[in-house]
Design a protein around this nucleic acid. Structure first.
Length: 180
DNA sequence: CCCTGATTCGC
DNA sequence: GCGAATCAGG
């Protein structure tokens, strides 16, 4: 990889837009590291932006413990010359077993401010899709995934694997029926 | 531990 | 010029 005019131009834009070095690197695609971006920025004399003031860090969400509604499809990588971000790989999580049990009144609500975009999605974050994948408002839960690196936060894992829990519960109830 | 930018220095 | 390694910090 080398610094073509195109790359440098994009670098300038994204950097001046306030993106962090790692975010810019991600945007420029694999092959450009955070260090490469920082190095280039210094060589270009672009260091010192208007302000680093707000450290716009991806945040983690704490999940309410209510039930959720169903399934959303993972976003399809767009064509049109867009760079496919590496995080796309993270966005695919096993959801085949999710049963759509509509309980609108109990739908999980994660504040938009706590959700994360594909760009912000990290391996340690919950990949539960939220919102319409065809809109710009589409986000992922972003909550903390468990230590083992599971795809979902505690709450969404519970929702995702609900069928298994139902089966177990049903079995237990058969074994120990309660009267009064 | 997650992340940030800054600096150094061999290539 | 380039960027990995390292440093210093939140």
């Amino acid at each position: 990889m080398s610094w073509t005019d195109e790359r440098v131009e994009l670098l300038r834009k994204l950097w001046s837009d306030g993106l962090s070095a790692s975010q810019v690197a991600a945007e420029l695609g694999p092959g450009i590291t955070r260090n490469a971006v920082i190095g280039k920025i210094h060589r270009l004399g672009l260091a010192e932006r208007a302000k680093t003031a707000s450290a716009p860090r991806p945040r983690a969400a704490k999940a309410p413990r209510t039930a959720a509604v169903g399934v959303a499809a993972a976003p399809a990588p767009r064509g049109g010359g867009h760079v496919v971000h590496g995080n796309v790989a993270l966005a695919f999580a096993p959801q085949a077993l999710v049963v759509a049990r509509a309980q609108p009144e109990e739908e999980v609500v994660i504040p938009m401010s706590e959700r994360v975009t594909l760009m912000e999605l990290r391996e340690s974050m919950c990949r539960w899709p939220m919102g319409d994948p065809t809109t710009p408002e589409f986000r992922f839960c972003g909550g903390k995934s468990p230590i083992g690196g599971g795809p979902y936060c505690a709450h969404h894992a519970r929702v995702a694997y609900q069928p298994a829990q139902d089966r177990r519960r049903a079995r237990e109830q058969l074994k120990a029926p309660r009267f009064a």
